[in-house]
Design a binder for these strands. Structure first.
Lengths: 197, 197
DNA sequence: CTGACCATGTAACCCGTTACATGATTCT
DNA sequence: AGAATCATGTAACGGGTTACATGGTCAG
């Protein structure tokens, strides 16, 4: 049900081909919290068309396979709204990195350093993607909800990077097997103003 | 491969039954970034035993089905280390909530408010779980890597709640369809010191 | 007595990924 | 020349969830 939802949501912002939807999902506005491969998108679009939630027109281009441009229908819009208003499965976060971090003592300093480096690098990469996207759409007459979402993602990633940089030393010490007990117990958060609750 | 890894990681902290592993995955230390159901755990444990990565002993209890307590073997420990050191698929975040948020204009204020409330509530709930867990293990001779991971999760959730509370008004305004152009463009982050990069 | 918790397991199903199949065009 | 981008699609496979099957204990 998730790829369906994603396709409808994207088409509600404008017509697109399966190829374009995949690109958006992988590196566009939605890439922070969604992803999908061709193998799921193409069948989903075909089914949505069969059900009348989207329509398709073929744009022939010499040499290349014809582009199949999909448009959402009113029925599709209604169905999307229903999905968005009714069922909201909770967010999901899966982190192999944290599993490694929690096993720091066993894994050792070298692997931990590599894992942290990778983690920061990946986060930086996504952050940059989103930042570019943002600068490209800011002040255009584009959907302001999307801008809000992008800002949310950017904030999360900045915070994440900051936390990792501020606290990596402690984790590395654990991984290196320092016998001491002088850990900065609360793991001194990057910043701690009032922050909720 | 993920449930295998999870089972081994948990067993490396101490013996456990399938039931206990599931509980930990759902509401324990690992629950912030992992999850698994019986339907995947029991078969995984059986297979791990067949492969010699864990051993099992049955503890009979009158009336109840015998507890099957699993222990990790040295081979299992080695295999776990290999997994943790070598392959590290990137973290995954999936957020139906953000899809709704990005569709704010279509979805409308009422639904947005509900979605935000739910999101905050769920995050608060998880935060409380982790906080309790933390206070229960702090200063015990327990794995300090795990404590680090818990602190990481706690920080992320506090920050998330703070961001949602600070910026919900803006999203609600978008959803309510205010025609104005006086948005707090940068969506005033809860705090913005230097923060990385 | 009802619901939550303990405790195990299987089978059907779902949703998605990976790999394959095909092929032109444009950038380096 | 080789890689990347455009462009569609299918089939095999995988990993997990949900629902089912079973049943005792304990607290409210």
């Amino acid at each position: 049900m998730s790829v369906r939802r994603l396709c409808l949501a994207m088409l509600s912002e404008g017509d697109a081909t399966g190829y374009e939807i995949r690109k958006e999902a992988t590196s566009g506005c939605f890439s922070y919290f969604e992803d999908a491969s061709y193998g799921s998108i193409y069948p989903a679009l075909a089914k949505l068309e069969k059900e009348g939630l989207v329509t398709m027109r073929e744009e022939k281009q010499p040499g290349k396979p014809a582009r199949k441009v999909y448009s959402i229908t009113q029925t599709g819009r209604d169905a999307l709204l229903d999905m968005l208003r009714e069922d909201l499965p909770p967010d999901i976060y899966r982190s192999p990195f944290l599993l490694v971090a929690m096993s720091a003592e066993q894994v050792g300093g070298k692997a931990i350093r590599r894992a942290i480096d990778l983690q920061i690098e990946q986060t930086r990469h996504k952050l940059q993607q989103l930042s570019e996207l943002k600068s490209r759409i800011t002040d255009k007459p584009l959907n302001r909800g999307i801008l809000w979402g992008i800002n949310y993602g950017i904030d999360c990633m900045i915070q994440k990077i900051g936390y990792l940089e501020a606290n990596r030393a402690e984790l590395e010490a654990i991984a290196d097997g320092d016998g001491n007990g002088s850990q900065p117990q609360a793991a001194a958060p990057v910043q701690t103003p009032q922050a909720a609750e």
